[in-house]
């Protein structure tokens, strides 16, 4: 038995028939071939599969594809717009926030959601926000620095604008 679902992934509308037991992460990877979302465990412990469902960071291994019917989904492949990297993507490169890269998409998706809720996080808040994501390579420090870097960068353009307005 298959169920028809329609959802928007990275701005593109998809309609597919899926088995009811198919996990959302497998739908993204196997049906849509969006392999940037990774599977690192089977107990929702590692966070490598984190995506945005209707704007909220979600571990895509905890959801069935059928539950995502009508949802708006962003995956790591949808983070760069018009060939311009998201500030977090740039930050992870600048601060050496990744090594093997396997946990990186999940880290970036978790951090992106976190930064919408906390625009000026301190170190402790960032570390706590990463509770649900495992990295075995970096020892986390450079991930923390990357998120700090992105937070600064994301609040910077506004600051510049205000400055400009002030001088006019």
């Amino acid at each position: 038995m298959s169920i028809k679902i329609t959802l928007t992934v990275n701005g593109v509308k998809h309609t597919n028939k899926v088995e009811p037991r198919m996990l959302l992460v497998h739908y993204l990877r196997d049906v849509l071939k969006l392999t940037g979302t990774h599977v690192g465990c089977d107990t929702s412990g590692c966070g490598a599969c984190t995506i945005h469902v209707n704007g909220k960071a979600t571990k895509s291994c905890t959801m069935l594809a059928v539950q995502a019917d009508k949802a708006k989904i962003i995956t790591i492949e949808g983070m760069a717009t018009h060939h311009e990297l998201h500030p977090l993507q740039e930050a992870f490169n600048q601060c050496h926030g990744l090594q093997c890269g396997f946990c990186t998409p999940g880290m970036i998706m978790t951090a992106a959601d976190f930064l919408t809720r906390n625009k000026k996080p301190n170190e402790k808040e960032i570390r706590e926000a990463l509770e649900g994501n495992l990295c075995r390579c970096t020892g986390y420090e450079n991930i923390v620095k990357s998120i700090q870097y992105a937070a600064d960068k994301m609040s910077a353009p506004k600051a510049r604008k205000t400055k400009k307005e002030a001088t006019v």
């Binding site: 969006l34 392999t35 940037g36 979302t37 995956t75 790591i76 492949e77 983070m79 760069a80 990297l85 977090l88 993507q89 992870f92 490169n93 990744l98 093997c100 890269g101 396997f102 990186t104 998409p105 970036i108």
Partner: peptide, 10 residues
Amino acid sequence: EDKRFTTGHG
């Protein structure tokens, strides 16, 4: 190597 990993293209 970072570009492919941060954009989901590893």
